[in-house]
């Protein structure tokens, strides 16, 4: 059991990071802290994918001309995560823009307070 858990070390760390981000997003009322939680979740997914692609003794996937018997790590997760990072940056920037607008209109970053103000119609 312990041995099995140790061999999955990276996956366990990334799951923990995912849970931390999820908990931050649910329990914090400050919109900026929610965005930070979203970014922690993003990072945990990147870590998960990149560890999935690792191979013991593998080299970075840059072809060495003429070399035989070189073990390369899995290049596909790296390519997918490159895409995911760009999407995460876009989502974060858009969330920040919306937060700036909300702060200008309501003068607070508290999600509950913003909902209250909306219902009062001010």
């Amino acid at each position: 059991m312990i041995h099995e858990a140790l061999s999955q070390y990276n996956y366990i760390v990334s799951s923990t990071l995912f849970l931390i981000g999820l908990y931050t997003m649910i329990t914090r009322r400050n919109l900026l802290k929610k965005i930070i939680g979203l970014n922690i979740m993003d990072t945990s997914v990147f870590l998960f994918f990149i560890s999935m692609g690792s191979v013991e003794g593998g080299r970075a996937p840059i072809v060495i001309p003429g070399a035989e018997d070189v073990v390369y790590v899995n290049p596909l997760p790296q390519a997918l995560i490159l895409t995911a990072i760009v999407v995460a940056v876009s989502v974060t920037a858009f969330a920040l823009a919306l937060t700036i607008r909300l702060y200008e209109d309501y003068g607070t970053l508290d999600a509950d307070r913003i909902r209250e103000l909306r219902e009062r119609g001010t």
């Binding site: 061999s7 999955q8 070390y9 191979v55 593998g58």
Partner: peptide, 15 residues
């Protein structure tokens, strides 16, 4: 996570 192949295994289906 416990069902995943071990990290760095060259026999993982993904590889």
């Amino acid at each position: 996570v416990m069902e995943m192949p071990p990290v760095g295994s060259p026999d993982a289906p993904a590889y």
